[in-house]
């Protein structure tokens, strides 16, 4: 696995170069390992799930497969999106498919280890628990997410 291993604390241990798929939510930039991404699709018809936790927005039909759509905004404690459009990043975890709802997809980037930095203290706690690592790219702060944590979160 050429994933960079990063701790949530200040110490950072990384190995090799990793390719990340970047995306934007509100004004912030996030990324997940490109190896986790199955595909990226446009906004889809959602079937709402009654009584589901707040971050689970519904179910999508992806060529006959049921995909659970998660709102990262909701997870991070951000207000609901004002926009009509958004993109879905389809990821797979343990036989289930999930769609991460994001505002905009950025490029795939190669990130070298030395770019990783310690997580700033001023990052919201709600986001912090999902952070795998942070680094600067072109002057912007890019937050790498721990996909497993994101998918397995317990709703507070």
């Amino acid at each position: 696995m050429n994933e960079a291993e990063v701790l949530i604390d200040d110490t950072v241990t990384v190995e090799a170069i990793s390719q990340l798929c970047g995306f934007r939510i509100e004004k912030d930039f996030y990324a997940i390992s490109v190896l986790d991404v199955q595909e990226v699709i446009r906004k889809q018809d959602l079937t709402i799930i009654p009584c589901a936790p707040g971050h689970i927005k519904g179910l999508i039909n992806l060529r006959g497969q049921i995909v659970t759509a998660l709102s990262l905004r909701n997870l991070f404690g951000l207000p609901e999106s004002q926009n009509e459009t958004y993109m879905n990043i389809i990821v797979k975890s343990e036989e289930s498919l999930y769609a991460l709802m994001v505002d905009e997809i950025l490029d795939v980037m190669d990130v070298e280890q030395f770019r990783y930095e310690k997580t700033p203290d001023n990052l919201d706690d709600r986001v912090r628990q999902y952070i795998s690592g942070v680094f600067k790219l072109d002057g912007k702060l890019l937050i790498k997410l721990n996909l497993d944590k994101v998918l397995k979160q317990e709703d507070k």
Binding site: C51, A52, I56, L59, I66, T68, E94, S96, K152
Partner: peptide
């Protein structure tokens, strides 16, 4: 089948298209 997080919603047995 529904994804694991949704399994707690016992009143749903699954989903279909």
């Amino acid at each position: 089948p529904l994804s694991p997080e949704l399994k707690t919603l016992s009143f749903f047995a699954g989903a279909t298209i």
